[in-house]
Measured scan of single mutants.
Amino acid sequence: SLTLTVRGEEAVRRWYKWAQAHNLEVEVETHGDEYVLHIK
């Protein structure tokens, strides 16, 4: 499992696509303009 902090929706989309390509689940938490992604 992997936890990432990114800024901006574009980065979130990029990681989301990456995770889907690897059959992984993604949980997204929003903290202001930062997003915490939990990839499992």
Rank of each mutant, 00 (worst) to 15 (best):
G8V: 03
K17L: 12
V26E: 00
W18R: 01
E34M: 14
W18H: 02
W15T: 02
N23I: 03
L4R: 06
R13H: 10
K17H: 10
G32N: 06
V36M: 06
Y16W: 10
R13T: 09
K17V: 10
K40W: 13
L24G: 02
Y16P: 01
A21F: 11
Y16H: 09
R13V: 09
E10V: 09
T3Y: 06
R7M: 10
Q20L: 13
G8R: 03
T5N: 08
N23W: 05
W15Q: 00
E29R: 09
R14M: 12
V36Q: 05
Y35E: 02
S1W: 14
V12C: 14
E9R: 10
N23D: 08
I39A: 01
H31S: 10
N23S: 09
H38R: 12
A11D: 08
N23F: 10
Q20N: 08
L37S: 00
S1N: 14
E34G: 08
W18S: 01
H22R: 08
Y35A: 03
V36S: 03
E29H: 08
H22N: 10
V12F: 15
L24P: 00
T5H: 15
R7S: 10
H22M: 10
I39H: 01
E27K: 12
T30P: 13
E10A: 13
G32P: 04
I39D: 00
I39M: 06
E10N: 09
E29G: 04
Y35I: 07
E34Q: 11
E9K: 12
R7C: 15
K17N: 11
A11S: 07
A21M: 13
V6W: 01
E9V: 13
H31N: 14
N23K: 09
R7I: 13
N23A: 07
W15M: 06
D33N: 10
L24Q: 02
H22S: 03
L24T: 02
E29I: 12
L24M: 14
T3L: 08
I39W: 02
S1E: 14
E10C: 11
D33G: 09
A21L: 13
Y35P: 03
H38N: 07
E10T: 07
E34T: 14
W15F: 09
A19Y: 02
T3N: 07
E27P: 00
V12K: 06
L37K: 00
H22D: 02
H31W: 10
V36P: 00
W15N: 00
V36G: 01
H22Q: 07
G32H: 04
V28T: 07
E27W: 14
A11Y: 05
E29T: 12
R14P: 02
N23V: 03
L4P: 02
Y35Q: 02
D33V: 06
H38Q: 06
S1Q: 13
E27I: 15
E10Q: 09
L4F: 08
K40G: 08
T5Q: 07
T3Q: 09
K17D: 14
A19D: 00
T5I: 15
V12P: 00
R7H: 12
T30G: 09
W18F: 06
K40M: 10
I39S: 00
R14E: 11
N23P: 01
N23E: 07
W15S: 01
R7W: 12
V6D: 02
E25V: 14
K40D: 04
A11V: 08
H31Q: 10
W18L: 03
R13E: 12
H31E: 06
L4M: 09
R14I: 08
G32C: 06
L24S: 03
K40Q: 09
Y35W: 08
W18I: 04
V36T: 10
H38V: 11
V28K: 04
E10R: 09
Y35S: 03
S1V: 13
H38K: 11
L2D: 04
K40T: 12
V12L: 15
T3D: 05
E27T: 14
E29L: 09
V28I: 13
A11C: 15
R14Y: 13
Y16R: 14
E10W: 07
Y16V: 15
I39F: 14
V26D: 00
I39V: 05
Q20E: 14
D33F: 06
V36L: 08
A19M: 03
L37V: 09
H31T: 08
V12H: 02
N23Q: 09
E25R: 11
Y16N: 05
S1P: 08
E34H: 14
K17W: 10
L2Q: 04
R14W: 15
V12Q: 03
E25L: 13
W15P: 00
Y16L: 15
E25F: 12
T5F: 07
Q20S: 10
V6T: 02
W15D: 00
E10F: 06
Y35D: 01
V28C: 12
K40P: 04
E27G: 04
H31R: 13
V28Q: 03
Q20Y: 10
V6F: 03
T5K: 13
W18E: 02
E29M: 08
R13N: 13
E34Y: 15
Q20K: 14
V6M: 03
V36N: 03
R13A: 11
T30W: 09
R13W: 08
A19S: 03
D33K: 06
T3R: 12
T5E: 04
T30K: 15
E34K: 11
L2G: 04
E27R: 13
V12W: 05
R7F: 13
L24C: 14
E25S: 12
V12T: 03
T3P: 03
V12D: 00
W18P: 00
W15H: 02
V36Y: 06
A21G: 05
T3G: 04
A11E: 13
